[in-house]
Structures are given as structure tokens and as C-alpha cells.
């Protein structure tokens, strides 16, 4: 049963990795966009999926990362990829500062505050805050990333850059899930009073979940800025946050495979059905309602963690 799962995962990974060879530039670029959203959705999955915090402002952290990269690159010429750690760090710091006072809010209250945050960030960017964000036009002329002297510019090259980071993200987040930290988030999601009663510092873990999610969104911001070479506030609006929220709920809260599948459905399908552009939202709506009724856990809910109970190898790697 579990082996079968792994064969399916491996097959999917291989198909994705060789797909640029068979696709034209446009479709390769669609895959790049999907890759970015996979990373973003996986980072939101830590907050929303694992910890159960209704956070609908993830685009704010994404924006902080993207603008950090764009501003420092255009102003000081620092290579884009070098800015990735800094972008993540600043997004994480931003999350720490704004989440600290609201972290104890529950469910819909948190939802509303985070929606407020993403709007505040967008409007601040439009209003050219500190005179460095370029206002509504955004920032132009961000450098292409270079790796060992090779300039990354075609969709094919970006494909491997982005999906490399997706792979790293999947690897690290899987480890994170199968740990004391990952379990603590699940305990909080299930029942935070019982979690505190079992000795878990719920406020601390909620905050760290927020920060990790934000750091990753910041990393994604760097990749986005590098890919687009031009960023504007409209790329980080409320709708982006809603899409990410939908991906996690649709795919399966707390499930990496589910979130990836969800991204392909939410971001990929609309590309395939472009000619029905006007009906897309209607279909989306119907699908979401149907999901909530028939599969509230998402399409691919996470299987329970498995543990190797004898021997000394620690938690078994499970899907």
C-alpha cells in the first residue's frame, strides 16, 4: 500500500522533471508558475494545514520577499539569488512583528485580521511607502539570477531553478512534519487547550509556524521577482491569498501531496480551460462547495504518520 504510494509519487516527479522537453515555452512557464505556487502553498500549509490557523494574508509575506529582492537588487546591484536568505529573513521578521499581537485570535477573527494585513501591505506598496516601492507601477529591471556564471532567463532554465527549490522545500517540510515540532502544530490544531495541558507552549508554536511560513513565502518572493524582472503591488493582492487558501483546503490540510495536487488543479486547470475564462469562477465555486460537502478533509488528506516501533531508526519516512 505504502510502496504503491511511493511509486505514484516517483512517477509524478519524473513526469514533471522531464516535461519541459515536451512542452513549449508557454506551457513550461505555466509549470514555473505552478512551481512557485506549490512552494507558497506548502508554506501556507504549515500555518493553515498543520497548525489550523485561518491565515488569509499570505501574499503579504510573499510581497515583502519580492520587494526586498527587487529594491536591493535594483538599488545596489546585489545578485538576486544572494538576496534570497535576506528576503526570507525579512519576511519572517515582518511576520514575527505583525503576528505577535494577533496570534491568540481564533478562527474567523484571525482570518479577518490577516485579510486586513494583506490589504495594508498592498496599499502601502501602492502609496510608495518610504519612497522605495515605486508606487502602483512597481519596480522594473530586476536582474536575472545567475548560477556559476550561467544566466537563468528562459522558461526552461527557470523551470529547473524553481523546481529545485520546490524539491528542497518538500524534503525539508516532510522532515518538519515528522518531528516534535510538526506534531506540536497538529496538537494545537486538534485542541489547543489539551495541547497546553500536555505541556505545549501553544502561543510560541503558533508564532514559529507563522514565521516559518513567512520565511518561505519570502524565498518565493525572490524567485518571483527574478522570474518576472518587474513586480507591482497587484501581484500581491487579496485574491492571491485566497487562491493559496483554496489550494490548501482543496488539496488536503497538512498533506504535501495534497497541496501539490491542489496547486495543479487550482492554478493549472484554469490555464487548460482558458477559452472558458468567464465560466471558470463559477466552476471554482461549485467545486469548492461540493468539496466542503463531500470531502471536507480535501482531495488527498494526509495519511497518519507511521512510526517504527522497534529498532532505533526513529520515525519512519511516510507519505
Amino acid at each position: 500500500m505504502k510502496n504503491k504510494r511511493w511509486i505514484v509519487y516517483a512517477a509524478c516527479a519524473v513526469v514533471i522533471l522531464i516535461s519541459p522537453a515536451a512542452l513549449n515555452r508557454y506551457w513550461t512557464d505555466v509549470l514555473n508558475v505552478i512551481g512557485l505556487y506549490v512552494m507558497l502553498a506548502l508554506s501556507l500549509n504549515i500555518i493553515l494545514g498543520h497548525c489550523g490557523m485561518f491565515h488569509m494574508g499570505h501574499a503579504a509575506f510573499y510581497a515583502v520577499g519580492a520587494y526586498t529582492t527587487a529594491i536591493l537588487n535594483t538599488a545596489y546591484g546585489i545578485p538576486v539569488l544572494w538576496l534570497m536568505p535576506l528576503s526570507g529573513l525579512l519576511a519572517g521578521l515582518f511576520a514575527l512583528v505583525i503576528a505577535r499581537p494577533i496570534i491568540h485570535l481564533r478562527g474567523d477573527y484571525l482570518l479577518i485580521v490577516t485579510i486586513g494585513f494583506v490589504e495594508i501591505v498592498r496599499i502601502a506598496l501602492i502609496n510608495n511607502i518610504f519612497g522605495i516601492t515605486g508606487g502602483a507601477n512597481g519596480i522594473f529591471g530586476i536582474d536575472r539570477p545567475t548560477i556559476f556564471g550561467m544566466k537563468i532567463s528562459t522558461p526552461g532554465q527557470f523551470f529547473y531553478l524553481i523546481w529545485f527549490f520546490v524539491a528542497v522545500t518538500i524534503y525539508l517540510f516532510r522532515k518538519l512534519e515528522h518531528s516534535r515540532f510538526g506534531r506540536a502544530l497538529n496538537y494545537i490544531r486538534e485542541d489547543d487547550v489539551a495541547a497546553a495541558g500536555s505541556g505545549i507552549d501553544t502561543g510560541h508554536y503558533k508564532l514559529i509556524a507563522f514565521v516559518i511560513g513567512a520565511v518561505w513565502a519570502g524565498f518565493c518572493g525572490t524567485l518571483f521577482a527574478a522570474k518576472m524582472t518587474i513586480i507591482a503591488p497587484e501581484s500581491f493582492n487579496f485574491w492571491e491569498s485566497v487562491l493559496l487558501f483554496m489550494i490548501v483546503l482543496l488539496g488536503g490540510r497538512g498533506s504535501i501531496a495534497g497541496v501539490i495536487l491542489g496547486t495543479f488543479l487550482v492554478i493549472g486547470l484554469p490555464e487548460i480551460f482558458r477559452q472558458f475564462a468567464t465560466a471558470r469562477m463559477l466552476v471554482f465555486g461549485v467545486v469548492m462547495v461540493a468539496m466542503m460537502i463531500f470531502r471536507p478533509e480535501g482531495i488527498l488528506p494526509p495519511p497518519p504518520r507511521t512510526y517504527r516501533l522497534d529498532g532505533d531508526t526513529g520515525p519512519e519516512e511516510a507519505a
Binding site: 518531528s179 516534535r180 506534531r183 489539551a194 500536555s198 514559529i208
Partner: peptide
Amino acid sequence: RLFQKLTALENVLSGCHCRMKSGSIAAM
């Protein structure tokens, strides 16, 4: 007030939590 959707073992592991130290970075 158990964690209903988690296994019995994981429920007990939550109690071990406060006697452990590893954080998110060690987890990764």
C-alpha cells in the same frame, strides 16, 4: 479532550513534548 484525529501513540507523544528540546530547525 484527546487529539481525536491522531493516533493513540501520538496522543501520548504530546505528553513527552515538554521533556524534549528539538525545535523546527533540528526537525528539518
